[in-house]
């Protein structure tokens, strides 16, 4: 197991969410936060930062940034659930943009739809004020490593 995964495991066991984000450089650059929601499931959030804007006239969050936030949420969701010995490798990622991401906090939730020995399928949903009005929905496949 890599040193990163050993550190990750320890931070997870102690629920040191902010330090988990700090250990993934691009997640830290985006400004991602996460924790357990009221139902005990992981809830990811991204407070609004001007550096994440992709349309200055609306203004709206950058579509690629929304993708990165969702992909990162799926990755951490899998790692949090001890689904892989090393960081899962993304195989493909498909994203539907439903509404523009406004200058507000963006939230995301993940659901592992299928967990095989080698591959996991994850659904991800992002919203802002109203969960019934998603900003984007995505799905991803990840390769897992069983380790030695």
């Amino acid at each position: 197991m890599s040193q990163f995964m050993e550190t990750f495991d320890r931070l997870r066991d102690e629920k040191r969410y902010a330090e988990v984000i700090a250990s993934v450089p691009y997640a830290r650059l985006m400004g991602v936060e996460f924790g357990e929601g009221d139902d005990g499931e992981l809830l990811f959030s991204l407070p609004f930062y001007e550096r994440n804007v992709g349309n200055t006239t609306l203004p709206a969050l950058h579509g690629g940034l929304i993708g990165g936030f969702l992909e990162n949420a799926a990755l951490l969701h899998l790692m949090w659930g001890r689904e892989s010995q090393e960081a899962p490798k993304i195989v493909d990622f498909s994203l539907d943009y439903l509404r523009s991401g406004r200058a507000q906090t963006l939230y995301a939730r993940c659901e592992i739809t299928k967990q095989g020995k080698r591959v996991a399928h994850v659904l991800i949903e992002a919203w802002q004020e109203d969960r019934k009005k998603p900003v984007a929905v995505a799905r991803a496949h990840f390769l897992l490593s069983a380790g030695s």
Binding site: S2, Q3, F4, M5, S23, V24, P25, Y26, A27, R28, L29, M30, H62, G63, G64, L65, G67, G68, F69, E71, N72, L75, E86, A87, I90, F93, L95
Partner: peptide
């Protein structure tokens, strides 16, 4: 600061998503 996996130094997939978009 664009890395997604600190164990390998590989750039985060989100950066790829942004540049493709």
């Amino acid at each position: 600061d664009l890395v997604g996996n600190p164990a390998t130094g590989v750039v985060h997939g989100g950066v790829i998503t942004s540049i493709v978009d």
